[in-house]
């Protein structure tokens, strides 16, 4: 009986995802009739500039939204289970700050290091690598600390402290850097789904796929971890190895996504909670695909709102996700009076 309700829920979500995907493509600063969009997607070209907008701008942006939403949602889900904390997420645990710090050093630190590496360092790839390394490093430090302190609140506070430290370093760096460097950094900081070419999207997709595959291989482990580490060990789980796989997976997902799309707030924290509300289970075999779908759907909706259809303005995506994500978290806390995971 329960399985059929879940099957229905999944069918509804998949339909919603398809609808949101097409809605997202059909909206933009230039209004393109639906018929022309379908024709372009299925290979009949009737207007080359429309075709250019759809194929080279809107489609990659929609795919990026799906990758960003699902990837951040899943990395948040894994972190909430791993850290036994409903507030865990890429943002709170300092992973995003780590990525920001990496990007700040590459974009702004070059004036300190010296001008000669400037050309190589400010390419998109150096930003990507720096952000991934930064997030991985922070997550590793948080984890080492987590194995020393048992108190989960302490871990969260440490994560927040990392946020402060990296913010401070960014401030120091920005004091010494030029206007253009500052601009590069701050535009990255606003978050953007629309800057990716197909080539970049491919790289993002490959890294994301590795992260997703690792998370799929961790489904059973994640379920075991719901009992706590001592019980998990008594069930024959190799804690150190599974922890490492989960951490590599989350930092690949959160790190690369943050690198390519900038820091996207609240998706990683809020999506897993919304999923748990809808599916009322703790089993990751259901939660993981459901988080994937919900993350993708909500990110597509946020992006559709951010581009303010039929206007020339585009809002920073980070602001939209915060405006939607923060109230959801507050609403969950008020309604349930406690956050469970």
């Amino acid at each position: 009986m329960k399985t059929t309700t879940n099957t229905w829920a999944f069918l509804v979500l998949i339909t919603l995802l398809v609808i949101c995907f097409f809605t997202n493509i059909s909206l933009g600063s230039v209004s393109i009739p639906n018929k022309a969009i379908f024709n372009t997607l299925f290979g009949n070209i009737d207007n080359t500039s429309w075709q250019h907008i759809i194929i080279d701008y809107r489609l990659p942006k929609a795919f990026t939204a799906i990758i960003v939403g699902s990837g951040l949602g899943i990395s948040g889900l894994m972190m909430q289970t791993l850290f036994r904390n409903p507030l865990a997420g890429p943002f709170v645990l300092g992973i995003t700050s780590g990525a920001s710090l990496g990007v700040a050093i590459v974009t702004m630190g070059t004036s300190l290091i010296g001008g000669l590496t400037l050309v190589i360092l400010t390419t998109k790839w150096s930003i990507v690598i720096a952000a991934t390394l930064g997030s991985f490093l922070v997550l590793l430090i948080v984890l080492i600390v987590a194995s020393k302190v048992r108190d989960v609140m302490a871990i969260l506070i440490i994560g927040l402290m990392f946020g402060s430290i990296s913010a401070a370093i960014v401030n120091v760096l920005s004091y010494f850097s030029s206007a253009e460097e500052l601009q590069t950094y701050f535009f990255w900081g606003f978050g953007s789904l629309g800057n990716l070419s197909w080539n970049e999207l491919l790289i993002l997709f490959i890294l994301y796929s590795v992260g997703i595959l690792l998370s799929l291989s961790s489904i059973k482990t994640l379920n075991t971890l719901l009992l706590g580490e001592k019980y998990a060990k008594s069930l024959g789980l190799n804690i150190k190895k599974s922890r490492l796989i989960i951490i590599i997976s989350t930092s690949l997902l959160a790190g690369t996504i943050t690198a390519f799309a900038g820091p996207i707030a609240f998706i990683g924290l809020a999506i897993p909670h919304i999923t748990r509300q809808l599916f009322k289970t703790s089993n990751h075999i259901i939660l993981l695909p459901a988080t994937f779908l919900l993350g993708a759907i909500i990110m597509l909706i946020c992006d559709s709102i951010a581009q303010l259809p039929n206007s020339d303005y585009t809002l920073p995506i980070n602001a939209i996700t915060s405006l939607i994500g923060a109230p959801v978290v507050i609403w969950l806390l008020v309604r349930k009076r406690k956050m469970l995971f």
């Binding site: 719901l226 009992l227 019980y231 703790s282």
Partner: peptide
């Protein structure tokens, strides 16, 4: 064990099912 389980959001059936993990 004496220590509480990490997630109190588990249902009884889910919790007992976890015993089958090995």
């Amino acid at each position: 064990l004496t220590e509480p389980i990490a997630s109190k959001n588990l249902s009884v059936l889910e919790l007992v099912t976890l015993g089958r993990q090995p």
